Computed example of a mutant assay.
Amino acid sequence: MNQRKNKPVIGISIGDINGVGAEVTIKALLDNRLIKLVTPVIYAHGKALTFYRKHLGIEDFNFMQIKSIDEVHHKKINVINVLEESPEVLPGMETNEAGKLALAALDHAIKDLKDNKIEALVTAPLNKNNINSPEKKFVGHTEYLTEAFGSKDSLMFLVAEGIRVGLVTGHIPLKDVSKNVTPEKIKSKLNIMMKSLKDDFGIAKPKIAVLGLNPHAGEDGLLGDEEENIIKPLIKEYKDKGHLVFGPYSADGFFGMMHQKKFDGILAMYHDQGLIPFKSQAFETGVNFTAGLPVIRTSPDHGTAYNIAGKNVADEGSMRAAILQAYDIIRHNGNWEEEGEL
């Protein structure tokens, strides 16, 4: 995409309208500083947003309904109806209709992203149960987008101030993790992380920590041999090439001693190993970024939170951070002229 004079257009797929996605989106976009930087386009249905505007008593949230991305208005919050009829909004309830809208919103946004009509996509949380169908298996946003854009691989990269954590394995059962921790997979994720830290975050010589798979990083083979046979030789290979890659570290000691502050990125072997410490530190400001795609996609680091949906207590910090992170990555990639500071 070439540099333009207008603000970058950032799409927001609404996710499950019965979760907190609509609430955190509305609250985040009430921040006028954000609207000065980007032009938001929400893929949803105007009736769902109107429901939450009234239900939450946020009457000063205004939007403009457009039929397609070609009608985008840079001084407004834009909304595209992705289905003719909006499903009934039932905060906290899991419904098939909400799943249908969530998938339609995501697919519509992906099409506009492929057509270079939007500069980035921010995905609000959805429910994997009601979005799945016999025709379309949905494991997660990361996997769905990786397939949609034909990428060989991608990296689930959780980022916040002071901590960035990527995963070797993502949404797979714990019993399958060990057999998926291969030299090829670790190398692929490391390469994506290094390139992303350089291109997307502007770090010329990134310093990366690699965590071990087993307790105490295997204890020299006593508690598992993946560190000795797979991870250590691979780290040596990267060091020999002049890369700042270190480890393997025992995850508990690494985070317990706050060593994450010493590194630009951390590569964890499996989902909870990386996400538990990340969310403990940055739950309200963390962003899930899919590195390795030919496009920019971010999201809040939380789920649908049905238990608090519609109660006006959801924190919009992570959604705001996701939109701002997308904007920052657009600038780091050189796709946009900087027009102002927050």
Rank of each mutant, 00 (worst) to 15 (best):
W336M: 15
G15P: 06
L244C: 04
L293C: 10
D112R: 07
D301C: 14
K175S: 15
S299L: 07
A105S: 15
Q260I: 03
N130S: 10
T25I: 13
S280Q: 12
G15V: 03
L90N: 10
N214P: 03
M258R: 11
E23R: 07
S250D: 08
G11F: 06
T169K: 03
P134F: 10
P215V: 11
E337W: 11
S250C: 08
I12F: 05
E85M: 13
G140A: 12
E341M: 14
S318Y: 01
S86D: 13
L158K: 02
R53G: 09
P233N: 06
A268Q: 01
K195R: 11
K198P: 00
V295D: 06
L234T: 04
G170Q: 06
P294M: 05
G99F: 04
F201P: 04
P8E: 12
G46L: 01
E85V: 12
Y43Q: 07
A124H: 05
A217H: 04
E237T: 05
K185I: 05
P300T: 06
H45C: 01
K5L: 13
L83A: 12
K47E: 13
I330S: 05
L90K: 13
N32E: 14
D115R: 14
K100C: 10
E88K: 12
K5Q: 12
N214H: 12
T290S: 10
E316H: 11
M93Q: 14
D200E: 15
L223S: 10
N6W: 09
F255G: 00
V287D: 05
N180Q: 13
L103F: 09
Y238G: 02
E147S: 14
A102W: 04
N32S: 14
D240K: 12
V210W: 02
D31R: 08
K175A: 15
K47T: 04
E97C: 07
I118Y: 04
P134A: 14
A322W: 02
E337L: 13
V82M: 09
Y144L: 09
L126M: 11
A104M: 07
S68Y: 07
F61T: 05
R53Y: 04
G170R: 05
Q3A: 15
I296K: 05
T123R: 03
D16T: 05
G292P: 08
E88Q: 14
I42E: 01
I231K: 00
L190V: 01
I42K: 02
